[in-house]
Amino acid sequence: MAEAATMQVSDEVAVTINNMNKWYGSFHVLRDINLTVNRGERIVICGPSGSGKSTLIRCINALEEHQKGSIEVDGTLLSSDLKNIDKIRSEVGMCFQHFNLFPHLTILENCTLAPIWVRKTPKKEAEEIAMHFLEKVKIPDQANKYPGQLSGGQQQRVAIARSLCMKPRIMLFDEPTSALDPEMIKEVLDTMIELAEEGMTMLCVTHEMGFARQVANRVIFMDEGQIVEQNEPEAFFNNPQSPRTQLFLSQILGH
């Protein structure tokens, strides 16, 4: 699409996943995943529930361990070494379906916590950064409230701002809008679109097909722990190849 085309994608590699496999006990959740994400790319991952989408993006910041194959993020190989894990986590931001804000801290404290403790940013500077990003997600006036006082859409935008305060190079989104009431989905998607326009590398698990068409360079369809199909959004939606993709698309676009 017109907007997507204007967004820069470099040939520098951000994430490389090579023959990655993961098991929960004896259950083979992810099978032979191969994926390369370039810097500035926006990737949308979709697929039926239980197909392993969350597990895949959670492996990228090591919230889940993989058992076989390799994941390289920003040139750092993910291993069980704690040093590497903490380094990668501070470079990769993540937004969850249920926001996971810290309810005992104010919005501002939610945003400054990690910069202060992980990046050792001075408190004052961290607060300036936080206010900058809260303005960006359009809720600077809520800075001193607690998460429980905000609507779902506002909470998700705070969660995005909280991740951005760490100045991540990659953002992961796990169904960021599926716990929201319909009228709040747009405000969150708008924030994500803005982020995409600024050239953030993004991997989004979402079923918002409008969003996928508008910002994604690539849509990935997963089923039973495998990548079944990937393509540019236009081709993916208009001309899906695999019968499983066709079935899935007809189900979610059908009504």
């Binding site: 919230l63 380094k87 986590r89 996971n100 804000l101 810290f102 916590l113 991740s163």
Partner: peptide, 10 residues
């Protein structure tokens, strides 16, 4: 809550 803390690099 654990996951959010982990994902921020704490």
């Amino acid at each position: 809550q654990y996951e959010a803390a982990d994902s921020l690099g704490l």
